[in-house]
Amino acid sequence: MKIHINGEEKEILDGFNIAALLEELEIRPGRVVVELNRTIISREAQESTSLKEGDVLEIIHFVGGG
């Protein structure tokens, strides 16, 4: 199925949850925040939140900035 991650369209396996996707992308969950279709998904809820076709996911972190 296709979902959007950080503005890019990605093909992922059906039934992936957010925690599994982060692992697949090799992203450390402790340093990022995830937003699914404009709703923040807390770390605790990431494993129980399954992704579906057309989902829009934002994965953000802190960078240097002023």
Binding site: I5, N6, G7, E8, L25, E26, I27, R28, V32, E58, I59, I60, H61, F62, V63, G64, G65, G66
Partner: peptide, 13 residues
């Protein structure tokens, strides 16, 4: 201060 930005998913390391 820090800024909030998208993670680079092609280079997450």
């Amino acid at each position: 201060t820090v800024a909030v930005r998208r993670v680079n998913i092609t280079d997450p390391h």
